[in-house]
Amino acid sequence: MKLDKPVTGGPCWTELGTSDLEAAKRFYAELFGWRAQTDPRQEAGGYTVAHLGDAAVAALSPLYQESQPVAWNVSFAVADADAAAEQVTAAGGTVLLGPMDVFDVGRFTVAMDPTGAVFQMWQARAFPGAGVFNAPGSLGWVELLTRGPERAVDFYTTVFGWSVNSSERYTQWGLGGEDFGGMVRMDEKFPPEVPPHWLPYFAAADVDATAAAATEAGGTVLMEPASVPDGPRIAVLRDPQGAVFGVYPAGAEG
């Protein structure tokens, strides 16, 4: 991700919904050195912000609904959550939750694109989003995995105004000339029960060492560390509760 701060239309935050909050805190503290701080207010429902130093980098929370999967979710910054929700609907997507206020920190919407991938939108007030990007242990890239890439391009360029940089191997999303994410077509290698989804990638000082550390901490390596042709070395991991995320070298964004 070449973006170094939240900007309108770009990824600004990532949240984990997990079945075991305390276990997730331990796993990610061991893997990335995160310091977890849980909001003590009852109405916050256990929402926990992970920090690197003083900077907020991600959130972890219990599952709030029985139908909610254990998964990482990606949020995109918007200037007006209500207007963005209307744009989602007009472009063929679905608003699943909100828009709704979250205390005094912002306004929040959960939506689904026409291909079935769920994402979130965040209108910042007191909280703009992640305080650091691309440093080891922080958000570094976001990737859409979908079975309908052409429809996805139409949708996201309409809703967020993203640029599209496509090659034979990969499609990248960008804003103002700065690429921040990509898209993968889900083929027969993906089991049919795996839905389209957004996958966050966290920057790592050493991808191979991070994959090994995830295994030692009780996680699983889904895709062994590998060097992408003309690209960085990446790995895809799964935490002990089942949430999937990627890692790639800090400094190799874009």
Rank of each mutant, 00 (worst) to 15 (best):
L199E: 04
C12L: 08
V159I: 13
L237K: 02
E15K: 03
A117N: 02
L3I: 14
D206H: 09
M121D: 13
M100V: 14
K5I: 03
E15D: 14
G231A: 08
D80E: 07
V244K: 01
Q42E: 13
V184F: 10
E86R: 15
M183G: 03
E253M: 02
V74A: 00
P200A: 05
E66R: 13
S166L: 00
M121S: 07
K2W: 03
G106N: 07
P191T: 06
H51Y: 13
L16C: 06
K25N: 10
D39Q: 02
D230V: 10
V247L: 06
Q123E: 15
R238P: 00
V184T: 12
V70A: 06
L237Y: 09
D39P: 07
T220V: 15
Q123G: 06
S166K: 15
A85W: 06
D187M: 08
F103K: 07
V118D: 03
G129E: 11
Q120F: 11
G53L: 08
V153P: 05
G33W: 04
F180V: 01
Q68D: 13
A79E: 15
L97P: 00
V194M: 11
N73G: 14
S166N: 04
E188N: 04
G46N: 09
A213N: 11
A71V: 08
A124T: 09
G9E: 07
P11W: 10
G137N: 01
S19M: 00
D39I: 08
P249T: 03
P225F: 12
G219I: 10
R169D: 15
R41W: 05
R41A: 15
W173H: 01
C12I: 12
E30S: 11
A79P: 10
L237G: 07
H197A: 09
G242C: 13
W34E: 00
G92N: 05
V95C: 02
G219V: 14
A252C: 00
F155Y: 11
P192T: 11
L3Y: 05
R41K: 15
P99V: 07
L52Q: 03
A243L: 08
L237Q: 06
A250S: 12
L222V: 14
G161T: 02
E143A: 09
P232A: 15
W122T: 07
L63R: 15
M121Y: 13
D54T: 07
E150H: 04
T14I: 12
G254Q: 08
S61V: 01
N73D: 13
P99M: 13
A212G: 03
P225M: 06
L52H: 01
V118P: 00
E224R: 15
R26W: 05
F27H: 06
A203I: 04
A111P: 04
D179Q: 07
